[in-house]
Design a protein around this nucleic acid. Structure first.
Length: 793
RNA sequence: GGAAGCAUAGCUCAGCUGGGAUGAGCGCUCGCCUGACUAGCGGGAGGCCAAGGGUUCGAGCCCCUUUGCUUCCACCA
């Protein structure tokens, strides 16, 4: 081993070595039990940041752990590279607008861009030492993914779970597409409350509204049935100011008497409450806002203007005509589109939906069937499902996505679905294989594409090759583990459950591992635009090593958010240095080691047996914790074993025996060598899941010539029979040594100074072991003479 | 407005099903260059475990209340 560890060269070489040797290849469950992992295909919407590294690494550690527990780990990686997020990336990077280019040209720009990003993503994962099998790589835009996604849609359409309807839908006027509830974000903004009088037979009715531009779309006024102020108004007509048409005054229980004036105008559509009232009271619909965010041409005063400009203009008009009683500034929360921050509208249009509302109970029950780690994230899921208001709108009026395998008959407008053998199909480029039932054979292709989640929610089916020739659904379904961060519970988790229940009747996975988020500081998520992500992950790796970054990522409790600062990596580097040096010491002592047969503990000296028992104990404990996905706690256990017991105690005790066989005896030295060999190997195996590079380096440098496996990462964590008494002996012995060290420190002595006499109070049960350890203790403490003072505990 | 999480040493956090806070790392401080490691080793100081109440022989841990922080959801009249 070199004096200093050159991580840069080592990590690069080992990445290649693992790839060449196919160390992490999935073996199709031929000879081992399968452990399958459903990993998020990262959305290709920008660069990866430290938050991704944090979350993905935590899951990757589990993959390595399971592999070293003897599982054949099915661990496919992919990219979610279609849909709106990707389109927005391309529009940003290429400085184009999708709607101004021919569809095919935009699509090819997309393909080009995602290729670049995916290469970068993959390099990062590889550089981090991810033990994925890249033969299983997938993309959601690939033909196979499109085929399975379309098949999923066709199956759902067939069973009636996917349906098309004309209805007001959540709409983003910036992206010019329908969106789903899950894509909403709330944002606080400053608005003006406009107070205006509506003329009625019972006198003026004062109403407060934030959206005066919708006056033309006003369909009625609501008051609470019990509101004493408006008893005389309900049931009468009111005249809309400025536009002078009559609307009814109705009552509804959901009207809040405290908000505004307690009387509220209902327009189509100002907000989700308007939509509720519209549906409950079967109100007429007046189309005011167009899909591009302008006011309908036919609306007087403001036709053709953008919403915000129209609002200001109407306010001016009202003021000018003395119709504005007063204005009040206020803060309120508005629903915006998460991708662009634009305030959303409800726009009547025909869209495809997946029925989720009628099966809420089933989706809630599914949550009970999945083991959540940590458990409380189940709450997020259940509260989301319980509060869902609308079915999942899956059609997007966009370009780069999986097309709907649907045409519509030109005559009767009935949808004609593609046949399975046509898939994947683009209805813009192909025709249905048969004519419509009405006899017509002229078709209009569906131009919308599927919500990107409609495809990524079937990653389990894509990986299983659902319905394909080599379908392994039976083999891997439900998958053992889903890992992800908590920000996509309402989307990826929920939609995956929906699809899995509909297609297989089962939950998609047994366990879900939810990791936390990395914040730059409280309340500030790391984002590319804010440039607060502490440098690119790749730069961090190049400066500090992949092992250091991984060690950091494994340090926190599962599911908890954390803050990142580069300072944290110092702790990692300190550890890596320590491990390297400890190994250097051990291998120096093992230069002439002859490994005979298997480990026969009983012939070893007590101290040697103790540290081997400590390694064993820690292996058992760490496995328990990792089985619960507690990577941070497991690492802590291993750290204590390695740093405290192995380095600070064991090596210090055994050192002289190893250096001076003439004093301690050759057999005693051999005992120490045997122990060093096995305890260090045991420790390397434990750390292999966290810091795969440095551990593999040490394995290759030394162990490979003795062991059968060509890589440390192919070895298994071995468990021996526990010897609790020996563990207790070790603790007792540590206590003695600690006392001596304390004494020397207080007297400002050097640790190697001798002491004339050491008196040990030795419990009867440890007597024999202490006797056999006399030389070790003398060596470690510098005691010239040891007296045992026996007493019964 | 609803829900969840967190509140332990100056800082960042561990503390499993209730049983002595020898808690960890950093920082501070005092010593030691111990034939792997000064990016080290050995000591020390520093905590009425957010506040209050309850259950219990016993509470950092369980229950209730309060406060503060964070996150998620709802909230466009």
């Amino acid at each position: 081993m070199d004096k200093k560890y050159d991580f840069s060269k080592t990590e690069e070489n080992l990445t290649k070595f693992w790839e060449q040797e196919g160390i992490y290849h999935y073996r199709n469950g031929r000879d081992r039990k399968i452990f399958s992992i459903d990993t998020p295909p990262p959305t290709v919407s920008g660069k990866l940041h430290i938050g991704h590294v944090f979350s993905y690494t935590q899951a990757e550690i589990i993959a390595r752990f399971k592999r070293m527990q003897g599982y054949d780990v099915f661990y496919p990686f992919g990219f979610d590279d279609n849909g709106l997020p990707t389109e927005r990336l391309v529009e940003r990077d290429e400085k184009v607008r999708a709607n101004t280019l021919p569809r095919s040209e935009f699509r090819s720009k997309c393909m080009e861009t995602i290729g670049k990003y995916e290469e970068e993503f993959k390099n990062l994962w590889k550089r981090l030492g991810f033990s994925a099998d890249w033969n299983l790589e997938y993309r959601t835009i690939s033909d196979l993914s499109q085929k399975i996604s379309q098949k999923s849609f066709l199956e759902l359409a067939k069973s009636g779970k996917a349906y098309r309807k004309e209805s007001p839908v959540l709409w983003c006027t910036e992206c010019r597409t329908s969106i789903a509830q899950a894509e909403l974000e709330t944002r606080e903004c400053r608005t003006i409350f406009h107070y205006l009088n509506f003329r009625t037979e019972a006198g003026d009715l004062l109403i407060a509204t934030t959206r005066p531009e919708l006056l033309a779309g006003c369909v009625c006024i609501f008051v609470h049935p019990d509101d004493p102020r408006y008893k005389g108004f309900a049931g009468r007509k009111a005249v809309v100011p400025l536009y002078d048409f009559e609307i009814p005054i109705l009552t509804d229980d959901t009207v809040s008497m405290e908000k505004g004036t307690g009387a509220v105008m209902c327009a189509t559509f100002g907000d989700s409450t308007d939509l509720e009232w519209y549906q409950r009271h079967k109100l007429p619909c007046k189309k005011i806002i167009m899909p591009d965010g302008t006011i309908h041409e036919a609306v007087p005063f403001i036709g053709g203007m953008k919403v915000k400009a129209a609002r200001a203009h109407i306010a001016e008009l009202l003021r000018g005509r003395g119709l504005l009683v007063k204005q009040e500034e206020m803060n309120h929360m508005v629903a915006v589109h998460e991708r662009c921050g634009t305030e959303t509208e409800f726009i009547p249009s025909e869209q495809w939906y997946i029925d989720v509302l009628s099966e809420k109970e089933r989706f809630l029950k599914a949550a009970d069937e999945i083991r959540w780690h940590p458990e409380h994230f189940k709450n997020r899921y259940t509260s989301w499902v319980e509060n869902l208001k609308w079915d999942w709108c899956i059609s997007r009026q966009r370009y780069f996505g999986v097309p709907f395998p649907v045409w519509y008959c030109k005559e009767c407008h009935k949808p004609i679905f593609a046949e399975e053998k046509q898939l994947p199909v683009n209805p813009l480029e192909s025709r249905p294989l048969r004519s419509c039932d009405c006899g017509c054979s002229d078709f209009i292709p569906e131009t919308a594409v599927l919500d990107t989640w409609a495809t990524s929610s079937v990653t389990t089916l894509i990986n299983a090759g659902y319905g394909e020739e080599n379908d392994i659904t039976e083999q891997i379904f439900p998958m053992d583990m889903r890992c992800q961060a908590h920000d996509i519970i309402r989307t990826w988790t929920f939609y995956s459950v929906v699809k899995s229940i509909y297609h297989t009747g089962k939950t998609p996975w047994k366990d879900i591992m939810v990791s936390g988020f990395v914040f730059a500081k409280p309340g500030e998520k790391i984002s590319k635009s804010k440039n607060n992500g502490a440098g690119s992950p790749m730069a961090l790796i190049e400066t500090h090593s992949a092992d250091a970054v991984r060690y950091w990522a494994a340090g926190s409790k599962l599911g908890t958010d954390t803050f990142f600062s580069e300072e944290e990596l110092k702790i990692s580097k300190r550890f890596l240095n320590k491990l390297y040096n400890a190994a250097k010491f051990a291998l120096m002592q093992l230069g002439d080691f002859e490994k005979t047969s298997t480990l026969e503990e009983i012939q070893l000296l007590p101290v040697d047996r103790w540290i081997l028992q400590r390694v064993n104990e820690t292996t058992i404990r760490a496995a328990e914790l990792l089985n619960e996905y507690e990577i941070g706690q497991a690492r802590h256990e291993i750290d204590t074993l390695f740093w405290r017991d192995f380095c600070d105690y064991y090596i210090e005790i055994a050192k002289e025996r190893l250096y001076q066989p003439e004093k301690h005896g050759a057999a005693q030295r051999y005992s120490g060598q045997t122990c060093l060999y096995h305890s260090l190997l045991g420790i390397l195996k434990l750390y292999a899941v966290y810091t795969p590079y440095i551990t593999e380096y040490i394995y290759q440098d030394f162990y490979r010539k003795y062991e059968t496996e060509i890589s440390l990462h192919r070895t298994i964590w071995e468990i021996r029979k526990e010897d609790r008494l020996m563990l207790a002996f070790g603790e007792h012995l540590k206590g003695i040594i600690s006392e001596v060290r304390k004494e020397k420190t207080e007297k400002q002595m050097s640790m190697k100074d001798t002491i004339p006499e050491l008196v040990i109070s030795c419990p009867e049960k440890f007597r024999e072991w202490y006797r056999k350890s006399e030389m070790d203790i003398k060596a470690c403490t510098g005691a010239v003479k040891i007296l045992f003072q026996n007493f019964v505990m």
